[in-house]
Design a protein around this nucleic acid. Structure first.
Length: 521
DNA sequence: AATGAGACTTGGAAAAATGTTT
DNA sequence: AAACATTTTTCCAAGTCTCATT
């Protein structure tokens, strides 16, 4: 492994402010109980969730109580959630909301400005690093504050207290010549082979948390470009890759056959590979970790139904080649519902197989390649030489939607979705009634798109999957500013594509990346 | 060679910012 | 200019994948 940087200096990380106790108390079975500052902080965080579904979730509240009750006077340490009266905290939160609500416009504005100012001041100190003599932004320079763990889906730890990170939890990464900022750090390292600025271990989940450079930094820029180059290599080699997979499907070697079947699902259905997960995480799966209960074979068609990353429902029907159906039948019959279909396969084996075909190829590259190819295909499915910008823009969104659907980037629609649709329909009817044909057509398309994107999240595909060069090329072809397609932050993220089009911000983020991804030592 | 810790990328929800309608 | 709707950004959880270690 070679170095990412020669010199690296920064001012460490910014820690969130201490909680200021207000002396609020609770009642346990009707009796007053005093709280330690930490217990009060926890109760306050719980109260902040008072009007959300989380607080209705018994696992959430019982996990909360597990951590909270430890801090109560001995007599109350066995208290359950329903025995505790948090109403003073709930009232406090309601009061704060009401105060905020009734604030004058001016007051709100001045408070917002003040927040922004102090944030800017902190950012000036902690938000940038000097890498190889060049100043670059740091992405997440604020340390995560303590709070209730908000795991997705049925995460076993949801509602648990995520403790505060202190300076002596944090390891800094700096060059040898830089003096570490004052105070006692857990450790200061000079790891040129790592991109992180700082890290610590989350005390609740025991997972490593990292502080990274901003996407505009040369290191991230060149890695981002390399990612899409790798995806292009899939396209160039797709026939060869697929014939290797087909060959594997027929193999008498059980391991090879299973690996190949997993690769079919990754390539053709866009599944993630699915690493093994711990007991104390949400139960989600990917291709290699599918269980019998997730696969339904009906003649030549197979239905896959499971919870994927972030507990997002994943549902696809497919009519695979006979070899795949045969393998799936063999691997699901005679097993219990909760048995793994591909009991011989690990994600490492899948990646080892893939990289034996194309060096550096791994499972996730298929999603990048196919999302990009899908968007590209939709973009070029129609001629836009004489269209309006708005038409072009919608077409760009269509391409994005197709990629998001392929990747199964689903969202929970906003609470106001239905009523918003009604309003749109009303406006459409109004336009029709008044005979304004052009406006009616516009609104019709708006309604149609609104309905089709109801359950889809269009940000992730734009940010992580579609090669920005595809949009850049298409925009140039049809004469559309690419700034209309990408938000400011995405323009900056993708400034490696065309520095001249990027939003300019003095000093930071607009220069092209260094030619090599890493320095040679 | 297999395993798991560590490093890096991807992800939806919620907050904040911006745009539109009343 | 308030109220509401939509878009963008932030947050940090949750994946993937490599490499050091045994």
């Amino acid at each position: 492994m070679s170095a990412y940087w020669e010199t690296l200096s920064h001012n460490g990380v910014n820690f969130p402010e201490e909680y200021v106790p207000s002396g609020l108390t609770i009642k346990v079975n009707g009796a007053e109980a005093q709280l330690t500052p930490l217990a009060e902080e926890m109760a306050y965080h719980l109260a902040k969730k008072k009007d959300t579904p989380y607080i209705q979730d018994p696992v959430f509240t019982s996990n909360f109580m597990k951590d909270f009750s430890k801090l109560l006077p001995p007599a109350y340490r066995r208290a359950t959630y329903s025995e505790v009266d948090f109403s003073r905290f709930f009232n406090q939160v309601d009061q704060e909301r009401a105060d905020k609500e009734s604030m004058s416009k001016e007051k709100k504005k001045s408070l917002a400005a003040k927040r922004k100012n102090s944030r800017e001041a902190l950012k000036a100190r902690y938000g940038r690093a000097t890498v190889d003599g060049k100043e670059v932004e740091i992405a997440n320079w604020m340390v995560e504050p303590p709070g209730l763990f908000m795991g997705r889906g049925q995460h076993p730890l949801r509602g648990s207290w995520k403790p505060r990170v202190t300076q002596d939890d944090v390891i800094l990464n700096l060059d040898e010549k830089t003096t570490a900022p004052a105070g006692k750090w857990k450790q200061v390292v000079h790891d040129h082979n790592s991109m992180w600025m700082a890290k610590w271990v989350d005390k609740l989940t025991e997972k490593e948390k990292y502080v990274w450079l901003h996407e505009t930094s040369p290191i991230q820029q060149s890695r981002n470009m390399a990612k899409y180059d790798k995806a292009q290599a899939v396209g160039k080699n797709l026939d060869r890759i697929r014939s290797k997979i087909e060959e594997g499907l027929e193999s008498n070697d059980e391991v090879a056959a299973q690996v190949a079947t997993v690769c079919y699902l990754i390539d053709r259905l866009g599944m993630r590979v699915g690493d093994e997960k711990d007991e104390d995480e949400a139960d989600t799966v990917g291709a290699s970790t599918l269980r019998v209960e997730h696969v339904q074979i009906d003649g030549p068609t197979v239905e896959f139904k499971f919870l994927g990353k972030d507990s997002v429902p994943w549902l696809k029907k497919d009519t695979p080649p006979p070899a795949v159906v045969r393998n799936l039948k063999r691997l699901t019959s005679g097993k219990s519902q909760d048995a793994e279909v591909f009991h011989h396969v690990s994600s490492q084996m899948v990646n080892q197989f893939l990289s034996s075909i194309v060096p550096g190829l791994s499972a996730k590259v298929f999603r990048t390649y196919h999302a990009t190819a899908t968007a590209d295909e939709v973009l070029h499915s129609k001629n836009f030489s004489h269209a309006e910008d708005l038409d072009k823009l919608y077409h760009a969104k269509e391409a994005n939607l197709a990629a998001a659907v392929f990747c199964n980037h689903q969202r929970t629609p906003p609470k106001t979705w239905e009523q918003s649709l009604e309003k749109k329909k009303e406006r459409l009817e109004l336009a029709r009634a008044s005979g304004s044909e052009a406006r009616a057509q516009k609104l019709e398309r708006e309604v149609d798109f609104y309905v089709r994107t109801k359950n889809y999240n269009l940000n992730t595909s734009m940010k992580n999957y579609i090669d920005p060069r595809v949009y850049k090329k298409w925009c140039d072809e049809v004469g559309l500013e690419w700034a209309k397609v990408y938000s400011k932050s995405l323009q900056k993220k993708f400034s490696w594509v065309s520095p001249e089009d990027a939003v300019s911000e003095p000093g930071v983020g607009v220069s092209p990346p260094a030619s090599g991804a890493k320095h040679s030592p």
